[in-house]
């Protein structure tokens, strides 16, 4: 469970103050598929980065499963991200010089609790799940955008994280590939009870989310369950 309490993030641009997040309070349950929606500049990415421990808020509190994560040291945060969190970015962000297999295995290789065999087994099975096992020895640039994004999802999922973050993962994809990615998220969420927090500004994506939080000017504009999801 994630508890966000009165989260603020203020950027200073010279003398101008930008309140990217202006008092966000939110609780996210385990297994939830949450959509964060809103216009461009409304603070979606900022919120995701705060909860994903990629940036520090100006004020407020975040606890994940009771742990006050903002109190962690830099190194502890890195380890928390490695062991507990997974990320999917808009532009896939794969390492261009590593093969599909190496990209997927990378986070698992760093884990002290994974043997080499285990890393291999996990990577193979996740590659099979996303349907790119046959392309495991290809370089990212040899794949289409949709395929690359699926690889990046595999990389995020290989360590079986507690929370999966995705920041506009379909923004660079056509609707067919977007649907494929969303279906994959849906499947992961259903089968593995995976908590997913996804940012999107495409209205039709909302059909996939269990719950939709809309931001406007760094504040929560609406927070509603989507009973028709799935």
């Amino acid at each position: 469970m994630i508890e966000i309490n009165d989260l603020q993030r203020i950027y200073h641009m010279g003398t101008v103050e930008v309140r990217a997040l202006d008092g966000i309070t939110l609780t996210i349950e385990k297994g939830e598929f949450l959509g964060i929606m809103g216009a461009s500049g409304s603070g979606k990415t900022t919120l995701l980065h705060m909860v994903g421990l990629l940036d520090l808020p100006t004020s407020g509190r975040i606890t994940i499963d009771g742990l006050d994560v903002l109190r962690l040291t830099d190194y502890e945060k890195t380890m928390f991200r490695l062991y507990k969190l997974g990320y999917v970015f808009q532009d896939y962000a794969l390492v261009p010089d590593l093969t599909v297999m190496e990209n997927v295995a990378l986070p698992a290789m760093l884990r002290k609790d994974r043997s080499e065999e285990q890393v291999k087994k996990d990577s193979f099975s996740i590659l099979q799940k996303i349907g790119l096992y046959d392309r495991r020895d290809h370089l990212p640039r040899e794949l289409s955008g949709g395929q690359q994004q699926r690889v990046s999802i595999a990389r995020a999922m290989v360590n079986k994280p507690d929370i999966l973050f995705a920041d506009e993962p379909c923004a660079n994809l056509d609707s067919e590939n977007s649907k494929m990615v969303l279906d994959l998220f849906h499947e992961i969420n259903e089968e593995m009870k995976q908590t997913i927090i996804m940012v999107s500004h495409e209205d039709w994506h909302k059909d996939y989310f269990h719950r939709i939080v809309r931001l406007r000017d760094g504040k929560i504009a609406s927070d509603e369950k989507n009973l028709s999801a799935g």
């Binding site: 994903g52 890195t78 380890m79 490695l82 062991y83 997974g86 970015f89 390492v95 261009p96």
Partner: peptide, 16 residues
């Protein structure tokens, strides 16, 4: 730089 940022985001330590 961006690549490095991503690697750190997914839990690769700065020493690596």
């Amino acid at each position: 730089r961006k690549q490095i940022g991503i690697l750190k985001a997914i839990g690769v330590d700065k020493e690596v």
